[in-house]
Design a protein around this nucleic acid. Structure first.
Lengths: 196, 196
DNA sequence: TATCAAATAGGAGTCTACTCTCAAAATATG
DNA sequence: CATATTTTGAGAGTAGACTCCTATTTGATA
C-alpha cells in the first residue's frame, strides 16, 4: 500500500551522479581543454572515485556525447512527401530547433564546439557522422522512391551535409551568430542551385 | 676533385630509413589494424629501435600522412578564370589525377581508406580537413572576387567538399570503383543543380 | 530492525604512446 | 689517418586511460 516512488531513490541518485560527472567534465574541458583534463580531475570535481567515472562512462570521450540525431531523423521522416530533399531537411531542422529551449540549443552548440575543436572527440564522432550520413541517405532515398545506393541520393546527402557542416565551422568560431537561421539560409542557397 | 654526391650518404640513408619505417607501418596497419599495432612492432619490422621511430615521426598517427593537397591547390589556382567554382574544381582534380601513376593513386586510396576507417586517424586528419576547407575557400573567394568570409563562397565550398567526401566514403567501401571518374560525375551533378 | 543486493571508494596493476639520456657506431672532414 | 659531428640502439622512466579486486557503505525489502 505504501506509495511506490516513480523511481527508486537508488535510480534517482544514479542519474544525478551521472549527470553531475558529465557536467563537471564538460566544465573542465571548456576551462582547461580536453587533453589537459585527466579523469582523476573529473572524479575529484564530481566528488567520486575515478573508477566510478568509468562505471558510468565507458571512456573519457563518451563524456561528451548525447544522441541528438534521432529526433531529427523522425522529423525528416515525417516531413510532407511533396517536398524535395533540401526542403524536407529544412523543415525537419526548424521543427527540431523549435522544440528546444534556448538553453538546450546553447548546450548543443557547446558540445559541437568541443567536437569540432578537439581532435580526440572528432575521432569519436566518426561513427556518429558516417552513421548520420547513412541514415539520412536512407530516409531521403525512401522519400524519393530511389535505392539507397543511388548516386544522386548520395550526392544530395553529401551536399546537404557539407553545407551544414561548413556553417557549423563558422558558427563554432563565432557563437554570437544565429546558427539555426544561418543553416536555413545556407540550405535555401543550396536549394536555389548555389547561385553558380 | 672527388665527385660531390648529389646528397650525402647520410641524407640518403635517412630518407631510406624514414621510408622503410612508414612502409612497414602501413603494412602492419593494413594487416592487423591500427590500434592493434604497437610502435614496438613497427620498430621491429623496420629493424630500428622504437626511439628511432619517434625521431622520424612525431607521433604514431603521423606515420600515415603525406601532404597531397598542395598540388591540388596549385591547379585550382591556375584554372581558367572564366570557370565557375565547381568547374574549376573539376578541372583541377582531373589535372592532378592525370599527373599520377596508377600506383600513386592506389596508394592514395589505401591511405584514405585508413583515414576514413580508423577513428584515431580521422582525428589526426581534422586539421587537414578544416585546413583544406579553408584553403579551398580562400582560393574560390579570390577567383570569384569575393571576401573569404562570404557565406555564399562558404556554402559552395561546403557543398563541393560534402559531395566529394560522400563519394570517397563509397569508394573506400568499394575499391573497384573508378574513384576519380565518379567524383567528376558527382561534381557534374552538383553543377547541374543536383537535379532536385 | 535484520537481511539482502547493489553501488562505491580505494588502490594496486596493466598497457602503450612518448620522452630522455648516454654511450657506441657510422659518417663527414681535413 | 685523426678528429668532429650525426645518428643510432638500448633501456630506463613518465603519464594517463582503463581494469580488476575487496572491503565498506547505502538503499531496498520484509
Amino acid at each position: 500500500m505504501s506509495d511506490r516512488p516513480v523511481q527508486g531513490l537508488r535510480e534517482r541518485k544514479k542519474a544525478k551522479t551521472r549527470a553531475l560527472i558529465q557536467k563537471e567534465a564538460l566544465r573542465l574541458f571548456r576551462e582547461q581543454g580536453y587533453a589537459e583534463t585527466t579523469v582523476e580531475q573529473i572524479a575529484e570535481a564530481a566528488e567520486v572515485a575515478p573508477s566510478t567515472v568509468f562505471r558510468y562512462f565507458a571512456s573519457k570521450e563518451e563524456l561528451v556525447f548525447i544522441d541528438q540525431f534521432p529526433p531529427f531523423a523522425e522529423a525528416l521522416n515525417a516531413a510532407p512527401a511533396e517536398l524535395n530533399p533540401v526542403q524536407a531537411v529544412r523543415v525537419a531542422m526548424r521543427e527540431v530547433t523549435a522544440g528546444q529551449t534556448a538553453e538546450e540549443i546553447a548546450e548543443g552548440v557547446e558540445r559541437e564546439r568541443l567536437m569540432l575543436t578537439v581532435p580526440e572527440l572528432w575521432a569519436a564522432s566518426l561513427e556518429n557522422v558516417s552513421g548520420t550520413l547513412r541514415t539520412m541517405q536512407e530516409i531521403l532515398a525512401r522519400r524519393a522512391g530511389r535505392a539507397v545506393s543511388d548516386p544522386e541520393i548520395r550526392n544530395i546527402t553529401g551536399a546537404i551535409t557539407g553545407v551544414v557542416f561548413a556553417v557549423w565551422l563558422d558558427w563554432v568560431k563565432d557563437p554570437v551568430m544565429d546558427g539555426p537561421a544561418e543553416v536555413d539560409k545556407a540550405l535555401a542557397h543550396l536549394e536555389a542551385g548555389l547561385g553558380l
